[in-house]
């Protein structure tokens, strides 16, 4: 059995949190209950070494994505400072951003050659995604996070954390130190991923402010948000790509 990490949300997620998580939808009940918990579930193989290895690998994935996120502002600054220009060696994120800026500076109805449509399409998709992300995170801010560790086929521990930091855990009576460590690591992974998702919002905001300075037309950072969001997404995709190609 391979390890799988699920993030189970009441509504379909638009953005998967950084880390190894795969989205699942639990559905919303028509009741007056509180918002259902977002469940972060690690399903780990029975073999303890394989389970530890899976957690380590998941942590590495998150590390890589967090590191990539830490480079976003610097890369944006390089674009803003004119340190990069169009070229075949330019990463996709920078290429798309420069295309977006270039299109933005042309008056509406200018020469198109199809590029404007493509960029505009991407921009609108990014805008919708970003709005959906804001809603998703907004909803998660209302709910608890429940972190579950399934070792083999057995639920060995469940921890519920609210946004204020209070924690309740239910452990199987005969939990072993190794299993306790596995659950602790799952909890760390989930909470770090949750925080990273939230940070992305701020990062996109700061990125938008930078991008707004690139465009000659008078635009606000608000208008540049989708471009910034797209840039961040493409950098995360780069990490994903490099991890796939290195395995």
């Amino acid at each position: 059995m391979n390890a799988v990490f699920f993030v189970i949300e009441p509504s379909p997620t638009v953005v998967t949190p950084p880390g190894p998580w795969q989205p699942l939808v639990s559905g919303n009940a028509f009741s007056t209950d509180d918002q259902p918990d977002v469940i972060w579930q690690a399903r780990l193989p029975d073999d303890a070494l394989a389970a530890q290895s899976a957690i380590r690998s998941a942590m590495s994935q998150l590390d890589a994505q967090e590191h990539a996120l830490a480079t976003v502002e610097q890369r944006l600054r390089q674009v803003v400072d004119g340190a990069v220009s169009f070229g075949t060696t330019l990463p996709l994120a920078e290429q798309h951003l420069l295309a977006w800026v270039s299109m933005g500076e042309q008056p509406p109805g200018g020469a198109s050659f199809g590029l404007r449509d493509e960029v505009q399409e991407r921009w609108q998709a990014a805008q919708e995604q970003f709005i959906a992300l804001s809603t998703q995170v907004c909803e998660s801010l209302r709910s608890y996070a429940t972190v579950e560790t399934i070792h083999g086929s057995r639920l060995i521990a469940r921890t519920r954390v609210n946004w204020f930091g209070d924690v309740q855990s239910w452990l199987v009576t005969d939990i072993t130190p190794v299993q306790a460590t596995l659950h602790h690591q799952t909890l760390t992974l989930a909470l770090r991923s949750r925080a990273a998702l939230l940070r992305i919002i701020g990062l996109v905001g700061r990125g938008a402010a930078l991008i707004a300075t690139m465009v000659a037309s008078p635009i606000s950072a608000l208008m540049a948000l989708p471009a910034s969001w797209q840039f961040v997404q493409e950098i995360l995709a780069e990490v994903q790509q490099s991890m796939v190609s290195s395995t």
Partner: peptide, 22 residues
């Protein structure tokens, strides 16, 4: 729990500060 609380406050604040300019 202690680490998480500090981290969470930081993450919220970072998100809010990032959006402020926007």
């Amino acid at each position: 729990a202690q680490t998480n609380r500090a981290e969470m406050v930081r993450a919220i604040a970072t998100a809010a500060a990032g959006l402020l300019g926007v």
